[in-house]
Amino acid sequence: MDLDERLLTLLAKQEIYELMCRYCRGVDRMDKELTLSCFWPGAVDVHIGRHGRLHTGTAEEFFDQEWAGFGDFTASQHHLCNMLIEVDGDRAVAETYQFSFYWREPGDDPELNWLNSNRYHDVFERRNGQWRILRRDFLRNFSLPISPVDFPTPENNWPALSQSRDDLAYRTVADVG
């Protein structure tokens, strides 16, 4: 592979990584539009839990089914870990390790707060210069109850938690001057 091909592959991998970061932002900020924009319409979504399949259908169907449940939590954080991407023209596959935290007020009940270890096995496709997920196989490795020691609230000088487009994550360079 010559230098130009290697640079194009590197750019594709970066674009895919940033797509995955937007996906995490969309879920954590409860921005369904942003979340779904990471998938091609009709993209296949298979969620597999410890005890078998939880969902097989489209990404739109999965998020329509699960979205309200995400809002039951006070907040969530999705962290991307190891990500191995293989690009072949306008198609790519990736395995991404991911940790997610979900918690609910009051914050001291481990039955309401979870650490999840997951893996995404994604197929990406580039159309008109834009990468999106064409298929996702989601595998849950494990879930653990957690008990946050200092649940973040404005009263204890933590910034207010945000599951909306009002979050600082949506601030742009133009917003800060």
Rank of each mutant, 00 (worst) to 15 (best):
R140L: 15
A68P: 00
R140D: 01
R126T: 04
R165E: 03
V46W: 14
D109H: 08
Q98E: 11
G69F: 02
W131V: 09
D137Q: 14
S37W: 02
H79L: 12
M30H: 14
V87D: 09
S143G: 11
E18Q: 15
F62C: 05
L115D: 02
H79F: 11
W131A: 10
F138R: 05
Q98C: 15
G89T: 10
L7A: 11
L3F: 12
C24A: 15
M83L: 08
D88K: 13
L139H: 13
D64L: 04
H79E: 02
Y170R: 11
N156Y: 13
H55F: 15
H47D: 10
Y23D: 05
D137N: 13
Q130D: 05
F73M: 14
L112D: 13
C38S: 12
Q163K: 13
E61Y: 03
E60R: 05
A92R: 06
G107M: 04
T9F: 01
T9P: 00
P41A: 06
V93E: 14
A59N: 07
T74W: 10
R22F: 03
R25L: 14
L3Q: 13
L112C: 10
D175P: 08
V27E: 08
D122M: 09
V173K: 12
C24S: 12
V93T: 15
T35E: 01
Q14P: 00
E86S: 12
N118R: 09
D167Q: 01
W103A: 11
W40T: 03
L7K: 10
L10T: 08
P152V: 02
T56I: 11
D45T: 00
M30K: 09
A68C: 01
F99D: 06
T74P: 09
K32Q: 14
D2A: 10
G52T: 08
F62D: 02
E111I: 00
L139F: 12
L8E: 12
R135P: 03
L161P: 03
